[in-house]
Design a protein around this nucleic acid. Structure first.
Lengths: 89, 89
DNA sequence: GCAAAATGTAAACATATCTTTACATTTTGG
DNA sequence: CCAAAATGTAAAGATATGTTTACATTTTGC
């Protein structure tokens, strides 16, 4: 037996800027390394849209992607991602 | 105008054990502190199901929850979550 | 100042994360 | 041993994350 769900979704609106509980320094770190969004996306095997969304705080990366990003920049995790209201200790 | 999507979803089967690219030490750290799943869930304002799913590697926590969990245990992020094939340096 | 490169917007689609509810099984302590 | 506590399974619903495609706008370099 195959089980199926049917859902109605209201679409994410590009305009909405939600205040994220997670800060990230992806844009700054990427610029320090003089890397374009396109190159970074290709290196990480994701799309440029995902980089944009993260840099513009449309949404947070998954845990897996976040770990790969910190690795990519060769910095400790806390230097890239922090809960808002926290220092990177 | 309201935009709506209709999707068919194949449901996640509880049985399936996907090999996650992310390791976590939530169960070990929780046990070291002698904390039950229920107390931890309440403290973090999530459900016990979510704790179970993470401990049993059904799925990874979101980045936000992962950061909160590391905070909760008072340990560096890398001591709780690592990419598979990586040490916690 | 112009073309190319880089960055941004939009929207639909696909999948992953998290909740809720309801039981079932295992572990713990008296 | 037995009840209570802790842990586990299951499944459907809701929302967040990530991809794809197609353009629009801004920045860079010559």
């Amino acid at each position: 037996m195959v089980c199926v769900k049917i859902t109605l979704h209201f679409q994410r609106k590009g305009v909405i800027e939600t205040t994220m509980p997670v800060n990230n320094n992806v844009k700054e770190l990427r610029r320090q390394l003089q890397i374009t969004q396109l190159k970074m996306a290709e290196d990480l095997h994701i799309t440029r849209q995902t980089i944009i969304a993260i840099e513009k705080n449309k949404y947070n990366p998954s845990l897996e992607l976040a770990l790969k990003i910190a690795d990519y920049f060769h910095v400790p995790f806390g230097e890239v991602f922090q809960l808002t209201g926290e220092d990177e200790s």
